[in-house]
C-alpha cells in the first residue's frame, strides 16, 4: 500500500475548516485521480468557559516548535498505517484562540467508513496526549492558569 497522504499544519491565525477541507479535496483529487469513498472530519472549537466554569476570554496555545510538527507527522503516519487510511489531515491552532474559534481539524480519507472513523478518533486522542501543546486559560480580569489535562472523552 502507498504511504498515506499527510497534510499537517500549525495555524498561527484563525482558520476556516471548510476552506481547509475544500483545498484538501482539490489536492487529493489531483494526486489520487478521485477522492476516496469514505471520509471522517472532526472540528474542535474553544468552549466559552474555563475548566472551573468561569467565562473564558481566550485560550493561549503554546507548543514546542519542531517537536510538535514531528510528533504530528509521526502520529498521523502511524494511525493511517494502522487503519489503512489513504490520507490524513491535521490543522492545529497555536497562539491566542478565542471562544468559538476552531482549534483543531482532523480529517481522514479511506476506502471504508470504519477505518476513516476509527483512524480519526485515534489520531485525535493521540494528539491530545502525545504532542507538546499546552493550553493556558485567560479570564476577562487578566488572571490565567495552565490547563493540567484533557477534558473527558
Amino acid at each position: 500500500m502507498a504511504a498515506p497522504w499527510r497534510s499537517i499544519r500549525l495555524e498561527p491565525e484563525p482558520f476556516e475548516p471548510l476552506q481547509a477541507l475544500a483545498a484538501w479535496h482539490a489536492a487529493l483529487a489531483t494526486a489520487l485521480g478521485a477522492l476516496p469513498a469514505a471520509e471522517s472530519h472532526f472540528i474542535g472549537r474553544v468552549r466559552p468557559s474555563s475548566a472551573s466554569g468561569e467565562p473564558l476570554a481566550a485560550l493561549e496555545l503554546e507548543h514546542y516548535p519542531g517537536m510538535t510538527e514531528a510528533q504530528l507527522q509521526a502520529l498521523a503516519q502511524a494511525a493511517a498505517a494502522q487503519h489503512g487510511a489513504t490520507a490524513v489531515l491535521v490543522h492545529h491552532r497555536v497562539g491566542r484562540v478565542l471562544p468559538g474559534e476552531p482549534i483543531v481539524l482532523v480529517a481522514v480519507a479511506a476506502d471504508r467508513r470504519g477505518p476513516a472513523l476509527r483512524c480519526g478518533q485515534e489520531l485525535l486522542e493521540a494528539l491530545k496526549h502525545e504532542v507538546p501543546f499546552w493550553k493556558r486559560e485567560w479570564l476577562a480580569d487578566g488572571r490565567s492558569s495552565w490547563v493540567t489535562g484533557n477534558t473527558p472523552l
Binding site: G44, Y64, G66, M67, A70, H92, I103, V104, L124, L127, K128, H129, E130, V131, P132, F133, W134, K135, W146, V147, T148, G149, N150
Partner: peptide
C-alpha cells in the same frame, strides 16, 4: 524529550543534546 523526541528519565545525555522538560500536555 531529548533532541525533540520523548525519552526516558535515565536516558544517557550527550554533549550538544537539547533536553526539554515537558509539563502535562493538553492539545486538541
Amino acid at each position: 524529550a531529548i533532541n525533540q523526541q520523548f525519552a526516558a528519565w535515565d536516558a544517557p545525555l550527550q554533549a550538544g543534546d537539547e533536553l526539554a522538560f515537558l509539563p502535562p500536555i493538553s492539545g486538541g
